[in-house]
């Protein structure tokens, strides 16, 4: 590499790091100016007061316990949906009857308002389990649809090769099936993680799940504490973002290993 091209690469990297930071700074400034214009912390907390509140909260054991409680429930729902969605898609790919029965039902689940499910499920399960069930229900159709699409996009020519040479299923899986399905599963996870958190927290707010982030958001509303509302929202975004990045990185690693 010449010194000119090395310098160009460094400049490109620097631009790549600076641009997102500049975007964040821009919106924080917009937020700060808006808070100054509104002039009332109850209506719109300033970035400074949110950061202070977040710092105060993060120093308490209760904060981490609350985050952990919500995380376990929502991640549990997401994991269950990933497993059952993948199994369901595998069954639907090999059985027209399963496909005909399950696909429309899950399309209906995907289209129905999440609040309808929250109220319905609240009749059946305790508020502690509500976030798990709701995030499961919201993620299940996404995983199912994407994995089914991935299975259907497998290379037919390679499947014929596997049939002719009678390659056992366990050996086909990493060679033929997973390389085709994994990109679809990864895309589903990207969408699914955010949706699991949004719907799970909504369920916690409505169900008033004890010791959850949703309960803290509800308290913030009752106490008219914008700073708390913004601080907990920031926590939700951060955890959801981190989980998505970690999960996608792990799946990309598997994709690279298979490739």
């Amino acid at each position: 590499m010449t010194s000119t091209s090395a310098a160009e690469s460094t400049a490109t990297l620097a631009r790549g790091a600076v641009r997102p930071l500049a975007v964040v700074v821009f919106w924080v400034v917009v937020w700060q100016v808006s808070a100054l214009v509104v002039g009332h912390e109850v209506l719109l907390a300033s970035p400074g007061s949110v950061v202070v509140r977040l710092s105060e909260l993060s120093l308490t054991a209760d904060f981490w316990g609350t985050v952990w409680t919500s995380f376990v429930r929502i991640a549990g729902g997401f994991a269950a949906a990933s497993v059952l969605g993948t199994l369901g898609a595998t069954l639907a790919a090999s059985s027209r009857v399963v496909d005909a029965l399950v696909t429309p039902a899950l399309a209906a689940v995907r289209s129905a308002p999440v609040v309808s499910f929250i109220i319905l499920v609240l009749i059946w399960v305790s508020s502690d389990q509500l976030a798990l069930v709701i995030s499961f229900l919201m993620v299940l159709p996404i995983i199912y649809t994407n994995v089914l699409e991935g299975i259907r996009h497998r290379d037919r020519a390679l499947l014929e090769v596997a049939d002719v040479f009678q390659v056992p299923r366990l050996r086909r899986l990493p060679a033929v099936d997973l390389p085709a399905v994994l990109p679809f599963f990864t895309a589903a996870c990207r969408i699914g993680v955010g949706l699991a958190w949004k719907s799970g927290i909504a369920a916690e707010v409505i169900g008033l799940a004890e010791g959850s982030i949703g309960e803290r958001l509800y308290e913030a509303k009752i106490l008219l504490s914008s700073a708390d509302l913004f601080a907990w929202t920031a926590v939700i975004i951060a955890v959801s973002f981190a989980v998505e990045k970690l999960l996608v990185a792990a799946l990309r690693h598997v994709e690279r290993r298979l490739a």
Partner: peptide, 16 residues
């Protein structure tokens, strides 16, 4: 009976 074939196309697992 077992079969083996060279197809008109190579039909290889590209990543392997």
């Amino acid at each position: 009976r077992r079969r083996a074939a060279v197809f008109q196309e190579n039909r290889l697992c590209e990543q392997l």
